[in-house]
Simulated assay, not measured.
Amino acid sequence: MHGVGQILLQNRAGVLDAWLAHLRDAAPAARPASLQLLKLELGTLVEKLTAYFLASDGEGAGAAFRTLEEQAATISAACARDGLTPMETATLILALKAIAGGLLNREAGNGITEPDQARAALDAAVDKLALITFATFVETREEIIKRQGRALLDLATPALPIWRHIILMPLVGIIDTQRARQVMEWLLEALAREEAHIAILDVTGVPVIDSRVALHLTKTVEAARLLGSRVIVTGISPDAAQTLVKLDVDLSSMITRGTLRAGLAEAFRLLGENARGPAGTML
C-alpha cells in the first residue's frame, strides 16, 4: 500500500500533532514529562507505520510489521508505568485509526488508488496494534503489581541486627504459605550473613495465629537450628495461646516469650551476656 505510506510520509507532522492533541484530551491526568516522552515514542510509531506501508502489502506480515509491533509494545508499557488506564491506552492507539483514516479520506480525490482497500488495510494494522498494546499493558501491570508486592513483603519482613549475634524479625500482617516460605528464606540468610546465634521472631503484628501459622513457625525454628542458631518467638497473645492449645499444636521445640522485651532478655541470657544496653541502661 504505497499510497498509504506516501500519504503518511507527507503528513507525518500533522498526524502526530493531531494524535498528541487527542492524547491530552483523552488522558488529562498524564504528566507533562510523560507527554513529552510519549511524543517521541508516538513519532517513532508513525515512522515505523509509514515504513511498513511503504515496504509491505498491508496484511501485517514481515519484518516491517514486527518492528511496528515492538514499538507499540514499548508505548503500552510506558503508559502502564505512567499510570494511564487500559481504556486510555487502547483509546490512544485506536485514535490513530480515525486520524490517519480521515487523512486518507481527504486524499481520496488526489490520486490515491483503491481508497477503500487502503482504509481497510490501515484499520486492520491499527486493530492488530491495539490488541498487542492491550496484551502488553496487562503484562506490564501484572509485573508492576508483583514488584510492588515483593517490595511490600520486604518492608513487612525486615531482618534487623540489634546486637552482636542477635537479629530481630518483626512480622506484620497475615502469614500465608508464600510469605512463610520467604520468612524462612530471609531469616536463614540473615542468620548466615550476620553470623547470628539468636533470632527473635516477633509476631505481635500478626492478626491470626492458628495451626497453619504455628506449623510455619515450627519449620522456621527447625531450619534455624540446623544452622546452629536458636529462635525465640515473641508476641503470642493470650487468645492465640488458647487457640493453639485447643488445636493441640506442638510448640515444644520453640522458645516463646510473651513480649519482645522478655524475648530480648532471654536472648541475652542464652548468649551468656549481661542484659544491659549501652551506658548500663536496662533493656
Rank of each mutant, 00 (worst) to 15 (best):
T220N: 04
R150K: 13
R147V: 05
L168W: 04
V138N: 11
T136G: 00
G43Q: 07
L247F: 06
L187R: 07
E41K: 14
R31H: 14
T67R: 07
P170V: 04
G173T: 05
A72E: 01
E222F: 02
L271I: 03
L8D: 00
L226A: 14
A73V: 09
A51I: 06
D17E: 15
L35H: 05
L187I: 09
T177M: 06
A190C: 10
Q10G: 09
L217S: 00
A13C: 06
L171E: 01
V213C: 05
T243S: 13
H165M: 12
T218D: 06
A51P: 00
R257V: 00
T67K: 04
I198A: 08
E70A: 15
T281V: 15
K48P: 03
L37P: 00
D239N: 09
A61K: 12
S56T: 08
L171T: 01
D210A: 02
A180L: 04
A190P: 07
N11C: 05
D239E: 14
D210P: 03
L227P: 11
A120F: 08
G111F: 06
A90Y: 04
L104I: 07
P278G: 11
I7R: 02
N11S: 09
L271E: 13
A125G: 03
S56G: 14
E114Y: 10
L35P: 01
L244C: 07
E114M: 10
P207T: 07
L251N: 03
A214K: 09
L283D: 06
D25G: 12
I7G: 00
Q117H: 11
A156F: 01
D82K: 04
I99Y: 04
D82W: 11
T85D: 01
G280L: 08
V221H: 00
L188K: 10
K97S: 12
K246P: 00
E142R: 14
V206A: 05
L54E: 09
G5Y: 04
P207H: 07
A80S: 08
